[in-house]
């Protein structure tokens, strides 16, 4: 499904701010994998997702999605394969456009933008149904500007937009980090639901270890630009938070207390 082969990325090469962010990432995702990704700040989690999404070109290595090589494709050309939700709820939606206009934009992800009308006649019913699934009452506010919505509502909408046109791969970059606990768990629940319903292959970055253990069928831990732990299947089912903290301490060779601070 997704293949990353020896991917390297260094930022600010040739300056004193040089930072090696990805250091030889090899990763293979199977169809339908739901992978949670954990790791301290600066471990390279977001960088890995951005490399897959094509925010910038990688320095070395290859990336392919569903057998299609995308290493040389810019972000907008990879968009047909990828649905994304970002950490910042403001980032995934157009604030001064209506809810239905945002959905219509997302509905056309991967299609040429022609001179046909921006929202087809039959689409509104589809959007209404999709919005009803969110359970936020947005189906009654379809012509409201998205800028009027709360962060949680916008994040739920972004999630819907990312999956409206079924993506080959769904990338969730700490998409609940900016939300209050109740809203965060609601958005997380929706994510689970959408991924299961559409049989999506997904990657989710989180700082919450419990979430990382509870969700998905596979867990990656990253440190210093490398994947240092890759647990899946039955082994992941048995995983406890304490195990993760210990594993992190073992592999990264740092103290457990500091890890707790970093990862809890």
């Amino acid at each position: 499904m997704l293949n990353l082969c020896n991917v390297h990325k260094t930022f600010n090469i040739g300056t004193i701010n040089k930072k090696t962010a990805l250091c030889g990432i090899d990763l293979h995702l199977n169809e339908g994998d739901f992978v949670t990704v954990i790791g301290g700040n600066g471990a390279g989690k977001s960088t890995m997702l951005n490399a897959i999404a094509g925010v910038w070109p990688v320095d070395e290595g290859t990336i392919s999605i569903n057998g299609i090589p995308v290493t040389a494709l810019p972000e907008y050309k990879r968009a047909p394969y990828i649905g994304r939700v970002f950490q910042d709820p403001m980032m995934g939606t157009a604030a001064n456009m209506e809810i239905e206009e945002n959905l219509a934009l997302a509905f056309r992800r991967g299609h040429r933008r022609t001179l046909r009308w921006g929202i087809g006649k039959s689409e509104r019913g589809l959007y209404r149904q999709a919005l009803e699934k969110l359970g936020l009452g947005l189906e009654n506010r379809m012509t409201s500007k998205v800028g009027l919505l709360s962060g949680g509502q916008r994040q739920a909408l972004t999630l819907l937009m990312a999956t409206l046109q079924k993506p080959k791969l769904l990338l969730l970059d700490e998409h609940t980090a900016a939300l209050d606990p109740a809203t965060a768990s609601k958005v997380l629940e929706l994510s689970d639901q959408f991924i299961a319903e559409n049989h999506l292959t997904a990657m989710m970055i989180t700082h919450n270890m419990t979430d990382a253990i509870r969700h998905g069928n596979r867990l990656l831990m990253m440190n210093a630009g490398k994947i240092i732990l890759d647990i899946s299947g039955a082994e992941k089912q048995k995983l406890k938070k304490a195990d993760l903290l210990q594993k992190f301490a073992e592999i990264s060779g740092t103290q457990e207390e500091t890890d707790e601070v970093l990862l809890s």
Binding site: Y76, K77, M90, G92, N96, E101, R108, G110, R113
Partner: peptide, 18 residues
């Protein structure tokens, strides 16, 4: 609509394949 989206949120527009 793609023009308006780009003006409103270029980041999101790229992610939507614009």
């Amino acid at each position: 609509s793609a023009i308006r989206a780009t003006g409103s949120n270029p980041h999101m527009s790229k992610a939507q394949g614009i």
